[in-house]
C-alpha cells in the first residue's frame, strides 16, 4: 500500500511539482489549498505524512494553526513545515508546535525525499517494538538508535528533528574529528547558511542541556566547525 502524503500549499505550481515528485517515488499525494479543506479531509482520513506551508492564502500563520489541530488529532504523525519564511522565530514556533522538521522552500527535491523517507521510516519503526537488530551508536552517555532515529543521553530521550538528528549523528560518529559546516549540511541533506548551522547547533545543545545541564559534548572548533568531544 502506497504511503499517503498530504501537501497543504497555496502555491499551485510548487504543490504540483512536489506532487509529481512524490508520485514519482510511489506516494499517494493529496493537495489542499487552504486550511479548512485540509482540515476537513484530515478529519476523514489521517495521512501518513503532512507537508504544510506556514502561510496559507490570507492566513499568514494558517499552517501553524493547522499543525496544532493535526497534532492533536494524530500525535505520531510526521509533520514537515515547508515555508518561504526562514526567521528564527518562525522556526522555533513551528518546531514548538510539534513539527518534525522545518524546511525552507529552496530545498531540493532530492533532499526533501530523503527527509520524507527518513521521517516515514522513523514513524513506522516507532510503532514497532524495539529490536535487537537496531543499529545503535553509543558514545559515552550518548546513545543513538540510527534506525529509529532516536537519541538518548544518560538514558533519557532527547527529541530531535530529522535535521538535528543527522547533525548529531554526523558529529558523534567520529568523536574528536572536526566537522565543518559544509559537512554538517551535507549530512543533514540540506542547504543552509552558516548562521542556520550555528542555530541548529545551538538548538541541539539546548535540547541536550534540558536533559543534562552540564552537557558540553559538542565543542566549537573556531573557524572550522564542530566536533564531538572525544572524552
Amino acid at each position: 500500500m502506497s504511503r499517503h502524503i498530504a501537501i497543504v500549499e497555496d502555491e499551485p505550481d510548487i504543490a504540483a511539482n512536489y506532487r509529481d515528485a512524490f508520485q514519482r517515488y510511489g506516494f499517494t499525494v493529496s493537495h489542499y489549498e487552504d486550511r479548512s479543506s485540509a482540515l476537513a479531509a484530515f478529519r476523514l482520513q489521517i495521512p501518513d505524512l503532512a507537508v504544510i506551508d506556514v502561510g496559507l492564502g490570507n492566513e499568514i500563520e494558517g499552517g501553524f494553526d493547522l499543525c496544532r489541530e493535526l497534532r492533536s488529532m494524530a500525535p505520531e504523525l510526521p509533520i514537515v513545515f515547508l515555508t518561504a519564511r526562514d526567521d528564527e522565530l518562525d522556526v522555533i514556533s513551528g518546531l514548538r508546535l510539534g513539527a518534525d522538521d522545518y524546511l525552507t522552500k529552496d530545498i531540493s527535491i532530492a533532499h526533501m525525499m530523503a527527509r520524507v523517507n527518513a521521517l516515514l521510516r522513523r514513524a513506522e519503526l516507532t510503532r514497532k517494538p524495539r529490536e535487537e537488530s537496531d543499529e545503535v551508536l553509543t558514545r559515552g552517555e550518548l546513545e543513538i538508535n540510527v534506525d529509529r532515529m532516536t537519541v538518548s543521553w544518560a538514558g533519557k530521550d532527547v527529541s530531535l528533528t530529522v535535521t538535528e538528528f543527522w547533525i548529531v549523528h554526523c558529529l558523534a560518529r567520529h568523536p574528536g574529528q572536526v566537522r565543518n559546516r559544509q559537512q554538517l549540511m551535507d549530512a543533514a541533506r540540506t542547504v543552509l547558511d552558516n548562521n542556520t548551522v550555528t542555530s541548529h547547533i545551538k538548538r541541539i545543545r539546548k535540547k541536550f542541556q534540558a536533559v543534562s545541564p552540564e552537557f558540553s559534548a559538542i565543542e566549537t572548533a573556531y573557524g572550522m566547525g564542530y566536533r564531538w568531544s572525544a572524552r
Binding site: 502555491e11 505550481d13 510548487i14 511539482n17 512536489y18 509529481d20 515528485a21 514519482r24 518561504a84 519564511r85 526562514d86 525552507t104 522552500k105 529552496d106 531540493s108 527535491i109 532530492a110
Partner: peptide
C-alpha cells in the same frame, strides 16, 4: 528574500522534476 523565495522554489522544484 521572502517574497522571492516562493518563485525560486517553483523554479527549483520544476528543474528537479525535469531531471527525471
Amino acid at each position: 528574500s521572502h517574497e522571492l523565495r516562493t518563485p525560486l522554489a517553483v523554479v527549483r522544484s520544476s528543474l528537479d522534476n525535469l531531471e527525471h
